[in-house]
């Protein structure tokens, strides 16, 4: 299997290396190096209950440089002895000029950070954040978007829906979201015609209960925008493995499926 020796084609070349396969999900936007390197103080200004297990935490963040829907940040809490716990969280709010951002957090069983937020935190508390981080899951509102999420995986997708609404965009955007039951559906109060919920444990009378299937995706794949959808999939690993397979089987190109896994 040894090939003919010869590196003339690459020796001395200073072109940027490109792998033989184009990466499925190249970054959508440039990410500023400065944003990632600076820790900022975020002051909690409000808490809103979304579901029995999920609440939204609103922060004032002086110096926040803005974000795009779908981006996340790193948040850290510091104990009195210097112990630090840090987590990545998706940003729930749309970009705006309010000087505030919102995080919508699940109360994770035994979670030291989400546990603090759900049982201790109150307005006036201060935490630290750095970001926004990562460009590959960002939606710069340049392509029609098919959003597929489950549980708290709806959070970065909801930032996209809010952005779409706040700018009154005509660009097609649809959300297919899976939840255990109507009372577990995060942002249910705000959902409108763009959203199709799927309930896995219990549903209102007349609505089928069960896992997301090809039938749920079919209407979106049949009526695609002219240039097709950019798909954004977010949730637990088991959910996104399932949903991304459904999308591929339905004909969605793999290079137009962006995945954010929680866990």
């Amino acid at each position: 299997m040894t090939e003919a020796s010869g590196t003339a084609a690459v020796t001395g070349a200073r072109e940027r290396f490109a792998p033989p396969t184009r990466f499925a999900v190249p970054g959508r936007i440039g990410v500023g190096r400065q944003e990632a390197s600076v820790w900022r103080t975020a002051t909690l200004t409000g808490i809103r209950r979304e579901t029995p297990r999920v609440s939204t935490f609103r922060f004032a963040v002086p110096g926040w440089t803005g974000h795009l829907p779908g981006q996340h940040l790193m948040l850290r809490l510091t104990a009195g002895d210097g112990y630090v716990a840090q987590r990545h969280y998706s940003i729930a709010s749309a970009p705006d000029d309010s000087g505030h951002i919102e995080l919508t957090l699940d109360h994770v069983e035994g979670g030291e950070v989400s546990g603090w937020f759900h049982t201790v935190a109150r307005p006036g508390d201060r935490v630290e954040v750095r970001g926004p981080l990562s460009g590959f899951f960002a939606w710069p509102a340049d392509r029609p978007a098919l959003l597929v999420g489950a549980g708290s995986g709806v959070v970065p997708l909801w930032s996209m829906v809010r952005h779409h609404r706040s700018r009154d965009m005509r660009m097609p955007l649809r959300l297919l979201v899976s939840a255990r039951s109507p009372r577990d559906l995060v942002f249910a109060r705000e959902m409108r015609a763009e959203t199709t919920p799927v309930f896995t444990r219990s549903a209102p009378a007349g609505v089928t209960v069960g896992r997301m299937t090809a039938d749920h995706l079919a209407p979106f794949m049949e009526k695609q925008p002219p240039a097709g959808w950019e798909a954004y999939v977010c949730g637990s690993n088991s959910f996104v493995e399932h949903a991304s397979r459904l999308l591929v089987a339905a004909g969605q190109p793999v290079e137009r499926i962006r995945i954010e896994r929680f866990g």
Binding site: T41, L77, T78, A79, G80, D81, G82, Y83, A85, E112, W116, V120, A121, D125, R126, V127, E128
Partner: peptide, 13 residues
């Protein structure tokens, strides 16, 4: 160091 009010974290290992 910016100590977070009321945060203790998981047991130290």
């Amino acid at each position: 160091m910016n100590i977070t009010r009321g945060f203790t974290g998981r047991p130290r290992v």
